[in-house]
């Protein structure tokens, strides 16, 4: 049954698949950075005792976490450009392009998940640490920046990275708006050349090898960090 397999289709399409992989990795990397940054802000808002800060943050996080990623991608891909036009009042405002649309969608989506991870991380830092920081006369900002967040992030590194691996897998969903990430490239060639079996199995193998070795590395890191404390 594997006799009419055409493995040549894979080598022929390598450059194109490579470009797709760069798209996937770039999207993952940038939305991870954006997501962690925004997620930290959201986490700090959620932990704040001011209702005007914590209520909207909680609302945003819960809303995003109960919406499917595909729907979020549709929201940002189809509606944000239109909203931006309305706001700027310029009917011919330049769109931000498919890559950035996807980047914004993933950043906003991941921020909600990173927020919860970071919130738990901050809460895991013993209260004595913040008490001590404030007793030394540090302001809230200084205490967070110099004392709490560094410790919290140190504990969170493995979970943040694991979430990054999940994010990398999720970027394959830009397929639904026809973009050419790794999976998009694989499916376009698969469909054009009628080689679904070869291309999809190859894509699965590549994703597996990358994600498996990445999670193995994270596990090693976890052991190393754990042993250090």
């Amino acid at each position: 049954m594997f006799s009419d397999f055409d493995f040549d289709v894979i080598s022929r399409s390598m450059p194109y698949m490579g470009e797709g992989m760069l798209f996937s990795l770039g999207l993952t990397f940038l939305s991870m950075i954006g997501g962690i940054f925004l997620g930290t802000l959201l986490a700090l808002m959620r932990l704040s005792s001011f209702r005007v800060l914590n209520a909207p943050a909680a609302g945003y996080v819960n809303l995003t976490r109960s919406t499917p990623l595909i729907l979020v991608i549709f929201w940002f891909y189809f509606l944000v450009p239109l909203a931006m036009k309305k706001i700027s009042g310029d009917a011919y405002a330049t769109g931000i392009g498919p890559f950035y649309s996807a980047l914004i969608a993933f950043t906003m989506f991941e921020a909600a998940y990173y927020c919860e991870i970071i919130r738990a991380g901050i809460q895991s830092v013993p209260r004595g640490q913040s008490d001590a920081a404030f007793a030394l006369g540090l302001t809230y900002g200084q205490g967070m920046r110099r004392v709490i967040l560094p410790q919290a992030f140190r504990n969170m590194v493995p979970i943040l990275l694991t979430q990054g691996i999940i994010l990398f897998q999720d970027t394959s969903l830009v397929y639904v708006v026809g973009l050419t990430d790794f999976m998009g490239a694989a499916s376009k060639i698969a469909q054009r050349d009628g080689r679904l079996v070869e291309m999809y199995l190859f894509a699965a193998l590549v994703y597996f090898l990358l994600c498996f070795s990445a999670s193995y590395a994270v596990k090693r890191l976890q052991v190393k960090y754990g042993a250090g404390r």
């Binding site: 079996v197 894509a203 994600c211």
Partner: peptide
């Protein structure tokens, strides 16, 4: 657990739907 966790859901969906019936 390792295999199913490390392949994106979309890819698995395509394998069930497009690949499995062919092999």
């Amino acid at each position: 657990v390792e295999v199913f966790r490390n392949i994106p859901l979309l890819v698995q969906m395509f394998i069930w739907y497009f690949v499995l019936p062919e092999i």
